[in-house]
Nucleic acid binder design. Structure first.
Lengths: 297, 297
DNA sequence: GTTTGGTTCTGCATCGGTGCAGAATGAGCC
DNA sequence: GGCTCATTCTGCACCGATGCAGAACCAAAC
């Protein structure tokens, strides 16, 4: 069986008269179209085009097959249209809860795609560090990190891990150099967590590695840690999701990384919910495509 | 637009109930099917399957799209069937002339495919070193090497170059070692051409490189040269097409290679011939897929 | 309870398809 | 004649899709 995808190349080339124009329309290289057509011809066992310096012209066989290819295109488009329409039919509202970090970096970028896919579904984002109760309907979907507390009655879909790593301001790293191993950490000033963040494993680890009196700053908020690190006060453990896109921050690649699982959660009673399930599945796909964001470069 | 080819994965997985069976049916790896389906779902913006430990089961959306995918499959098969049928309609006879080497190594292997593609076309192969006159109808198609003698009224399609190189019997090469450069050739016994082969450029070149009295054997036929070389008499220039598949022969990779163009020729008055043109095009494709044969490993 | 067989899914190495740069060719225009 | 422009096609380098091996999981059979 030939490669169905190259029927598109056939159609575009037949319509536009040259592989170059077809390639531009398809968003690929001209060479690619030429080779795919050559392969298609070999698979079908005939020559679809006459090749000239001025372009590709349909051969007799090509003209005969063109209507069939067009019919196939119609079917393919019908399928795509139905898939899109399927989303359009959904109506309703959904509330999604997440930390501010996840909301800004993961949910917000996915909103346009969700809006396009499900135009009549209104999505409300609730950013909070509190664990809203999904069973009591305080939210429909939650993005949560950490594998410890599985609750009964909660269904989870795993997302790419959130990875914490050690970062430092560019200025600091250029002055003192990047720490090549954990033992070298004793030389560096570090920034530590406070309040709830005092318990975060990567921050605790860094503080323990650092020398006596190395802690130059403490903050109970992630933005606070981020800002202090960018200012060059010292090294700090940060989520790649937060630090990865910031200018002026450098990753200490030689040091430990701290992956922790992230989940998209909802209550099992909503498993068959006609709105929640498709949107949750779509959101999962969207986020998975951004895995390098979560996991750092 | 999604990738049309993955609709096949969708269909097979839906029918067989697991990506593993679908992959076996498609002749690819299970992982591949899984990833292509994941991509397809992302492109369509919905989830086609429920994934279980026991296999993939169609979701509601998947069930809705299945008939459309089946219709698309019908169209694709109709197109393939028409392409095959197109060849079946051709009836007639064609005679193809080539040297014995080309006939045995290029034409003969392509005959089954031609027979399958054009079952009612009877192909006759005329092996001769003489240049039959295409205009006078002594043959319909000729496979010819060398670019020099373009005749007016002859249309040519270029095939992969035929490459000559220096070969030696395994025994000889293991005893004396492989020549690392052209200067080293003076140490080796060589086999030279005779009769018409005395003019072949690679053979002439090798004879000139060799030292005084180095020619230990002469032959006026390619099989003769081949046999003498395999016997270990000396080094010899041979076409990769002839030497490439022979056991007991070693390529002297460090030395010069001699590419020469090969053409599939027919008379321009046959350009629109309903039998000749498709068969010639098909034959060209078949031979091009064997390029490594012509050009050596 | 244990084993067996089938399944999904992940990490890593590899290969083939893809893109890029450039040569060759021919049409059209000045 | 010479220039420009669009085209096809080739060689080379790279990246992403693919294959492979293995882990994890579950159902069914023993």
């Amino acid at each position: 069986m030939y490669d169905w995808a190259s029927i598109r190349d056939f159609l575009l080339t037949a319509r536009l008269g040259s592989t170059l124009k077809a390639a531009q329309a398809l968003g690929v290289n001209q060479t690619t179209v030429m080779r795919r057509l050559r392969q298609l011809e070999a698979d079908l066992g005939l020559s679809l085009f006459h090749r000239h310096q001025q372009g590709y012209r349909l051969s007799a066989e090509g003209q005969e097959l063109l209507p069939l290819a067009e019919e196939m295109e119609r079917q393919a488009e019908a399928l795509g249209a139905k898939a899109r329409e399927r989303g359009r039919q959904l109506k309703g509202t959904l509330s999604i809860t997440a930390t501010e970090l996840a909301a800004v970096r993961l949910l917000a970028p996915a909103l346009p795609a969700i809006r396009q896919q499900f135009p009549d579904v209104s999505v409300k984002i609730v950013t909070t560090d509190a664990r809203l109760d999904l069973q009591r309907g305080e939210a429909d979907i939650a993005i949560r990190a950490g594998g410890a507390n599985e609750q009964p009655g909660i269904v989870r879909q795993r997302l790419p891990d959130s990875v914490w790593a050690i970062y430092g301001g560019m200025a600091l790293l250029e002055t003192m150099g990047e720490p090549a191993e954990e033992a070298a950490l004793a030389r560096y000033p570090v920034i530590a967590g406070d309040g709830p963040l005092a318990l975060a494993e990567p921050l605790v680890w860094l503080e323990r590695q650092a020398g006596e009196g190395a802690v130059v700053h403490r903050s109970n908020s992630l933005p606070g840690l981020l800002a202090a690190t960018k200012a060059g006060l010292g090294l700090c453990a940060l989520p790649a999701l937060a630090a990865g896109m910031e200018d002026g921050l450098g990753l200490c690649g030689a040091l430990r990384r701290f992956p922790s699982p992230v989940w998209l959660c909802y209550h099992e009673t909503r498993k068959a919910d006609p709105v929640l399930r498709p949107v949750a599945a779509f959101l999962t796909q969207q986020i998975r495509q951004k895995r390098q964001l979560l996991e750092g470069s």
